[in-house]
C-alpha cells in the first residue's frame, strides 16, 4: 500500500506502538493516525452510514471527514488530524484490511 522512504530524516525513525482492533502496529513519531493506518495497510477506515459503503481518507487535511475512526473509545475522530501516540487504541470496522 504505502512504504517509507528509505533515507528519510533520522528524527522520524523513532518508532511507537499502538493497536488497531487489538492488533499491534508500529508507527513513527510524527505520524498522524491516518498516515500510520495507511502505512499499516489499512485503507477502509469507516463505513459511511448514509451510503453503507466503506470509505477511507480522501484529503488528509481535515476537510473531508472520511477518515473518522474510534480512538481510545471516542468515535468519530479525524485520523488525519490526530497525532498517533504510544499505546493508542484505534478501532476501525472489521474486514477493513486490504493486505
Amino acid at each position: 500500500m504505502f512504504t517509507r522512504l528509505t533515507q528519510d530524516s533520522a528524527a522520524s525513525d523513532q518508532t511507537i506502538e499502538f493497536t488497531v482492533n487489538d492488533r499491534k502496529v508500529v508507527a513513527r513519531m510524527g505520524d498522524t493516525v491516518a498516515a500510520a493506518l495507511l502505512a499499516a495497510g489499512e485503507m477502509q477506515f469507516r463505513i459511511s452510514p448514509s451510503a453503507d459503503k466503506p470509505r477511507g481518507p480522501y484529503c488528509m487535511m481535515g476537510v473531508c471527514f472520511e477518515c473518522l475512526v474510534t480512538i481510545d473509545g471516542r468515535a468519530g475522530r479525524q485520523a488525519c488530524l490526530t497525532a498517533v501516540k504510544s499505546g493508542m487504541q484505534v478501532i476501525i470496522p472489521e474486514g477493513g484490511r486490504n493486505d
Binding site: D8, S9, D31, A35, M60
Partner: peptide, 23 residues
C-alpha cells in the same frame, strides 16, 4: 468515494509529514 481514491495533495501530505510513498 471508494477507498484508495485520494486527492493528489493527500499523497503529498503523506510524503511531507511521514515520508510515506505508495508502493
Amino acid at each position: 468515494t471508494l477507498p484508495g481514491v485520494v486527492t493528489a495533495g493527500a499523497l503529498q501530505i503523506l510524503l511531507k509529514s511521514s515520508g510515506l510513498v505508495a508502493d
